[in-house]
Amino acid sequence: MSRDNTGFLDRLRGATNRHDLDALVDCFTPGYRNETPAHPGRGFDGTAQVRSNWGRIFDFVPDIQATILRQAADGDDVWSEWEMSGTRLDGTTHLMRGVIVFTLDGDRAVSARFYLEPVDETPSTVDQAVATQVHESAP
């Protein structure tokens, strides 16, 4: 991974873990585009929405911490696997895991394909999950 790409991820993770909203927003270009392929209606443009989202997260998960589990780069594209954890104000666990694929312009993200999801800790099997996905009746 190139030094610049590693620097971007380190800067983003550091801003997240310090709960530094200004530094976090500065990791993105003004025209930033966030795509959420698994939830197309959740996509957005611009750093105003980044600020709004993360301001709410910092308010409601005051101890949130981010870990980058894996990372790889292909030109301006940076693939990163994340885990974000903390405790919400209501005392429940906040745990998200997944992949974010960033496209960079220098040391800032111009876009991302966002696959970070809340961890589903319900005790179900793969067979039950597939049955739910295909709307299969229980045998």
Rank of each mutant, 00 (worst) to 15 (best):
M1S: 13
R3G: 04
N5Q: 12
G7N: 15
L9M: 10
L12W: 13
A15M: 07
T16N: 04
D20G: 09
L21V: 03
L21P: 11
D22V: 12
A23F: 02
L24E: 03
L24R: 09
L24H: 11
C27L: 08
T29A: 15
R33T: 10
H39V: 04
P40L: 04
R42F: 14
R42S: 06
F44C: 09
D45T: 12
G46F: 02
T47F: 01
Q49K: 10
V50Q: 04
R56V: 06
F58V: 06
F60H: 12
F60T: 15
I64V: 15
I64M: 05
Q65C: 10
L69F: 01
Q71H: 14
Q71L: 07
D74E: 13
D74I: 01
G75K: 12
D77A: 10
D77S: 11
E83I: 12
R88N: 08
L89A: 12
G91D: 05
T93M: 03
H94M: 01
L95T: 02
V99T: 07
I100Q: 01
T103F: 07
V110F: 05
R113D: 04
R113P: 04
E117D: 14
V119E: 09
V130F: 03
V134A: 01
H135Q: 14
H135C: 13
E136V: 02
